[in-house]
């Protein structure tokens, strides 16, 4: 019985620890704000760096996931995409898509 409880506790603690690390997931807006420094005001680029305001949520999320898995070659984006969970990537993609008029 004690042993069973312990095993159950381990599971709980693992899942809790997972949540603690990502305790509050940053909002899509907070995540998206960090992109603007390179990709421009609201994701509208003035130079060679691509704009990211004109993608559908699916396109942007797929691009980020492909950078993350190294399926898509890049310069800095592979390194940056690896910093986010799939859930966060979806949240920032949704935010940029919501800016589209």
């Amino acid at each position: 019985m004690v042993r069973k409880v312990f095993i159950a506790m381990c599971f709980i603690s693992m899942s809790l620890f997972g949540q603690l690390v990502h305790a509050g997931t940053p909002t899509g807006q907070m995540l998206a704000y960090t992109c603007a420094g390179c990709h421009g005001n609201n994701g509208v680029s003035k130079g060679a760096i691509p704009s990211i305001n004109n993608l559908s949520a699916e396109q942007m999320a797929q691009a980020m996931l492909d950078y993350k898995s190294e399926k898509r070659p890049g310069t800095v984006m592979n390194r940056i995409a690896k910093g986010y969970t799939e859930e966060e990537i979806k949240a920032m993609a949704d935010y940029f898509a919501s800016l589209k008029k």
């Binding site: 603007a36 390179c38 680029s45 003035k46 060679a48 310069t75 800095v76």
Partner: peptide, 16 residues
């Protein structure tokens, strides 16, 4: 490519 992106970085961050 990174040299070109460096200049674009600047245009965009000052726009921000």
């Amino acid at each position: 490519a990174e040299a070109i992106y460096a200049e674009s970085w600047y245009s965009n961050i000052v726009d921000d």
